[in-house]
Write a protein that binds this DNA or RNA. Sequence first.
DNA 1: CTTCCTGCAAAGCATTTGCATCCAT
DNA 2: ATGGATGCAAATGCTTTGCAGGAAG
Lengths: 140, 140
Amino acid sequence: MSERPQPLRELLTGKGVRPTPRRLEVLEELAREGNDVTAQELWGRLRERDSGTGLATVYRTLSLLAEKGVVDVLSHHGGEQCYRLCGDGHHHHLVCTRCHRVVEVGECDLGGWLDDVASRHGFVATDHRVEIAGLCADCR
Amino acid sequence: MSERPQPLRELLTGKGVRPTPRRLEVLEELAREGNDVTAQELWGRLRERDSGTGLATVYRTLSLLAEKGVVDVLSHHGGEQCYRLCGDGHHHHLVCTRCHRVVEVGECDLGGWLDDVASRHGFVATDHRVEIAGLCADCR
DNA sequence: CTTCCTGCAAAGCATTTGCATCCAT
DNA sequence: ATGGATGCAAATGCTTTGCAGGAAG
């Protein structure tokens, strides 16, 4: 009677992470909320669902998932880290400043520009992060 | 017998911030280290110079300066915030992954690209942050 | 005299860690 | 049995706040 074929489990097994019930709960919660969540928020929601998951486990799981590249970690929230389930490849984020919706942006043809800017300062660019703030379709 | 004409003081007065000795010490320390520093690091350096400045004052001053736009706040350091004295206008950062040197990048002709990407997702872009990681001239 | 600044210590929060227990293999 | 996973509580580390003393206008 599961509503979906549990692709979430594979997200774990695919990375060699044992799919324990608690980890799946965390993952489900992340999937439920497409946007980014703090560890504390996520824990709160689990409690509302009467999950006995401990806060430490939430942190441990999120760290593990981040390490394995299953979730993105965003630091745009002051002292608190935000986690977000996301696609595999290179991508950036579009964040709505009003409702905080986050959309993944796959397109990234900045390669040339980056190399250009970097070399102009004697650098070799190896990585980059772009975060675009704005208003989403519903909020503008 | 001052070595420089104290342009730092004006950085404060210009924003309506009273240039107290402690604030100037913090500002001088930020100017001394062109790169980004954590509040704790900065406090440590002040102590080495036998400044009696308290940690709380360092935090209060940095917050104030950030609020007034005199310093940039970078969150790329895990739980700790990094502060950096920086120019006024719109700019981005080039960070050396080996020595952590930070260079300001004034050029930013991404306007068109940003609008394009944003509108493709129904957004209107209002702001953006770009952080380029790489190796600087000395480290590569 | 009044307001703002500061140092110190205590408090607050997010996150991590130690440890005993539990579970699955 | 054996090693990993987990809950709980204590510990950590950064940052903020309360408060009393001080300096500046």
